[in-house]
């Protein structure tokens, strides 16, 4: 079914159409969120918030824009909020003089095996650099499309992307821990 038809169906209140949108965008949104946040639980929270927000603001979606980019823009914002919350709680924990609780798994009884998340290398990058890198490498986005998601000019997006690529290259050459573990 065409994306625009699904959107029109959602606007008419058809939840089935919205379910199809959620299913269609769950995996790409999750991969982007995981690459930005480096954490599965946070990524799932961000995706849930994303789809709720998409549903609520579907009326304001501009049909001339790419729907995927619009969804990614919202997700990027949600991820930034999540990182901000994480930073604030880390600062709070630091102030309280306790050991950071962020290092402990959110759900110790989780049945899934521990999966390597791309946190080691990507944590060295800024969130916008990670986003630019992920969109470029996974989605094949151009600087202009990345700029549309990050809400910046294509020049700025291009610089973010190249900075990120340069940092990654440098870290890999330095024999980062990731390589040793990998």
């Amino acid at each position: 079914m065409d994306e625009q038809e699904l959107i029109a169906g959602c606007l008419r209140g058809r939840m089935e159409d919205f379910r199809m949108i959620v299913e269609r965008y769950s995996a790409p949104a999750m991969s982007l969120a995981m690459n930005i946040l480096g954490n599965r639980d946070d990524a799932e929270d961000a995706c849930q918030e994303l789809f709720i927000q998409v549903y609520r603001h579907l009326k304001s979606y501009d049909k001339d824009r790419s729907f995927k980019n619009w969804v990614y823009t919202i997700l990027y914002r949600r991820c930034l909020d999540c990182l901000k919350r994480r930073r604030q709680s880390a600062e709070l924990v630091k102030k309280m003089g306790r050991e950071t609780v962020l290092a402990t798994p959110a759900n110790p009884g989780h049945s899934h095996p521990p999966r390597r998340l791309p946190s080691d290398l990507l944590e060295r990058l800024k969130a916008k650099e990670r986003t630019a890198l992920c969109l470029w490498a996974n989605e094949g986005y151009t600087a202009q499309e990345i700029g549309e998601v990050l809400r910046c000019s294509d020049s700025t997006a291009r610089v973010y992307l190249f900075q990120a690529r340069k940092k990654i290259k440098k870290l890999l050459e330095q024999g980062h821990v990731w390589l040793q573990n990998g």
Binding site: V22, P28, S31, N35, P118, L122, N138
Partner: peptide, 17 residues
């Protein structure tokens, strides 16, 4: 870069989103 990132096909959503 692609080898460092989580790919769409690798995503396994544990929660019923």
């Amino acid at each position: 870069v692609g080898s460092l990132l989580v790919q769409e096909r690798e995503v396994n959503i544990s929660r019923p989103l």
